[in-house]
Amino acid sequence: MNRIGYYLLYVFLAIVALFQIFPIIWLFLFSLKDNREIFAGSPFALPTEFRWENYQKVWDGGIGVYFWNSVWITAVAIILTVVLASMATFAITRMQWKLSKLVLGLFMVGLMIPIHSAIIPLFSMFLKVNLIDSPWSIVITYTAYNLPITMMILLGFYYTLPREIEEAAIIDGCSVHRMFFRIILPMTGPVISTTVIINMIYNWNEFVFVNTFISSDKYKTLTVGIQNFIGQYMTDWGAIGATLIISVLPILLAFVFFSNKVVEGISSSAIKG
């Protein structure tokens, strides 16, 4: 490839990168401005003064509650999903029983289901058992809907575990539970961290379940919370910008530190069809 062509390709790739990243930088810039500056100045200008008080204002204004709801709901659902998915994957891949293939098939069919086709009955079911407007409806729904994808990521790893480990453990008189929790589960650490990241992105960003099942402000998570919140600050762009930056920050930070895991997780969750 000749030199000029080589540089042209780089310029092209850089423009694509700019297109991908610039809207987020713009958002960060206006989250630190006040309206006068946003409406009168160039959108590309740096803030004359960094107005961090925008962040303070929206945090105290109620975003804090949504933030912590997102944190604990995301965390509890991740733990439940990863533990239940690991247990089921273990039984399906490592234990001998006739229906294992069929059960695996059921989980994999779960990958293809559009959630919107289930949301009306879910709503009426939760209404009947008094789980509407309870954060637990969200936790168990996240867990159920993330089980298939989590198991799919785990499967490959479980199939490659050597039989000898289990044989040695059992000959040494280890029970299945001990073997699973003390030996197998720790061994799957690397793939578990991939599933945790993927679950974190899904749960943190989920919108429609919370929007449908939760009506009290005290239980709302960030995605739904910021929706209402932004309504109040209709014309205060600085506040809206700060709200949005707060809502995306944890995921962006996770990406900065674990980008390889994120890439791995997204590519292995992609080929689900």
């Binding site: 960030l222 995605t223 910021i226």
Partner: peptide
């Protein structure tokens, strides 16, 4: 990066 943000 955009893929990581919530649709909202």
């Amino acid at each position: 990066i955009p893929m990581l943000l919530s649709s909202v």
